[in-house]
Design a protein around this nucleic acid. Structure first.
Lengths: 199, 199, 199, 199
DNA sequence: AATGAATGAGCATTCATTCAT
DNA sequence: TATGAATGAATGCTCATTCAT
């Protein structure tokens, strides 16, 4: 059998629904999106959604899980592709903003819809998010050991700051009415982080 | 009648409802909070809520508006109280985290509940939030003019980064199970911003 | 305040909904009845039903509970009103069939709708129903002690038989297309029970 | 091909599904049973059920029809096997309770699940049930003609009473938590019917 | 005959908002 | 001002049934 077996079909339809949901959530917000909207956007019947996801909430979770796993995987590979912690940081930051900048709907879901509930934020945090922060933290720690970064800084806090700065770039990009590229922000952020704002 | 006329009473009750709503939103999330919950927490009848607010959404907006106005006012005063842009930055950052650290419920609403809808985020952004960013931006611009900060940096972007970093500190503080003080983070953030992470 | 206080109004509306539900359940069956049907029949909004009952199922329970409590109360009084166990039996049987014969909708709910689920039947049995059987059982026991009834019979079983016979009369009456009086069946049943069918 | 042709295979599978449905209906109730549950219990695909039955309702009907036809057939044979109407009554009653006592799932379906809708009860009544009552009625009429039973009694009503008493025994047996034999109740019921409860 | 993925009509329940008192 | 009973629109999810394979 070729690649179009039943299992592939299932995965393809799951993906289809996920993409449709991302679009719908991005446009209407999670709470204002009806499962029927997602079904229509995916061109399937309402009930079909429930063959692939247990609930509306599980769809949101799946969007997060799947993309976060991807992001972490790419992040790890990017780190391996460079030696200099500064360069590692640059690549991860750039990739971070590239990903979001390439899919506005996904970006909206990540920057806005996923933040709307403490409950979700807690799981969100507990899940891959913490892993992503870890990844950044490791880079800072490496840099400290190799003497590139100041040793007296708390790497965890620096990682959060770095993430927070990138995150804010992304959120502002989404909310902005002007159309600009998100990805170039990475270098600006990096510059400030590495060298500070002081002259 | 002294200053405690009916109008004062009204304001007091409005305040009462607002505080109750903050608590309820923080604990259950905006979408899962019922107006009846807020009414019960404020010890008034359901209908009374509508004598002070047009809708549930307006309550959320009011929480934001009122606190944001306060924050901006304080911010302006703090800026006046110092000459050195670095010190101005430090005071604003510290105040930012002090405010949130002093009222966990308010912090939850600001860091989590207010982020859950693009629609709200847009108004949110349009409203006082932009003003707050402006305030930070001004400090950076002043610092650039007085030669304290690097002139080649885009002050708007730096302001967003600074805000993003502080914001992330606050969000992490809320989600953290450990109990620590939020306010001391201000100096750590400032240090990195001023001097960078490079040794 | 006269009899039309809020509390009376509440009870009256609860009663109104209960009566409407009885009619609706009788005509369409419990599972095929929509809460919206009940609301329309009671001339209230859908949501109003939930101010008085927690769920659709609770409405069914309430119909049972309320009527069963009435039946048991009346039964007890009827027993007091006569000395001869045979006369007691006659009065209870007649009252049993009178009640059902007077309200066909209620009869349908009792004879048909309440029987449709083991779960309900169990609670049904556990609840007032067992009490009703007890009441009949007592009459038989009294009759046995006073020598009116055969002492070798198991009074519990006889009570069940008697109830079963009356119950079948009621069920048949409901399902019958012909219009006849239910109540006169009581004497026929009693005759057979007292004297047997043998000549 | 011998007698085990496809048609036999079909009947076997039909039977399989019917048995599975009886079990599922008995455990969950008709309305709470899903066709998918029945299919799984019968170890066939959901769609297969519809090759043998037009609808879920038809399955319930078939359970009734098939068993009722059996009961009537057995009943007729039992009547032929005895001359004395009293003995005929005894054999039919005993067989009635034996059948139900031997298959609790079937008994639950007959005593509880089949009673849950007026619509079904009407057809139920129209169908084999009336025939079963007729059978009992005939015995009483014979007994009246042969002078064994009192001539002034309405045989139809007596038949219903007799059925009602047996029916109640069966229902109580199902709902009872204690484990006892159902069949011996037949003689007790018969004794009361023949001789009455009076001493 | 058999499968099981897909369908889509159907419904109990919730809750923001109103308004008569 | 304050109340809280009443409203009714809104929606996630289920499941009997179909049909392409």
């Amino acid at each position: 059998m070729g690649p179009k077996t039943a299992r592939n079909g299932s995965k393809a339809k799951r993906e289809l629904i996920l993409r449709a949901a991302t679009k719908v959530f991005a446009r209407n917000g999670y709470f204002n999106s009806k499962v029927a909207d997602i079904a229509r956007a995916a061109d399937v019947a309402d009930g079909t959604v429930y063959l692939y996801f247990k609930s509306k909430e599980e769809i949101l979770h799946s969007i997060f899980d799947q993309n976060m796993a991807d992001a972490i995987r790419s992040g790890r590979e990017l780190i391996k592709s460079a030696r200099d912690p500064r360069e590692q940081l640059r690549r991860v930051a750039q990739h971070h903003l590239e990903r979001l900048g390439a899919d506005r709907d996904l970006a909206v879901v990540f920057q806005v819809e996923l933040r709307g509930s403490t409950k979700f934020m807690e799981e969100f945090s507990a899940a891959g998010f913490a892993e992503y922060l870890d990844l950044l933290c490791k880079i800072f720690q490496d840099g400290q050991q190799s003497g590139v970064f100041r040793k007296e800084l708390n790497p965890k806090i620096v990682a959060k700051m770095f993430f927070g700065a990138l995150d804010e770039m992304a959120t502002n990009w989404i909310l902005s009415k002007r159309h600009y590229k998100l990805e170039p922000m990475a270098d600006l952020v990096l510059d400030v982080f590495l060298n500070g704002v002081s002259s």
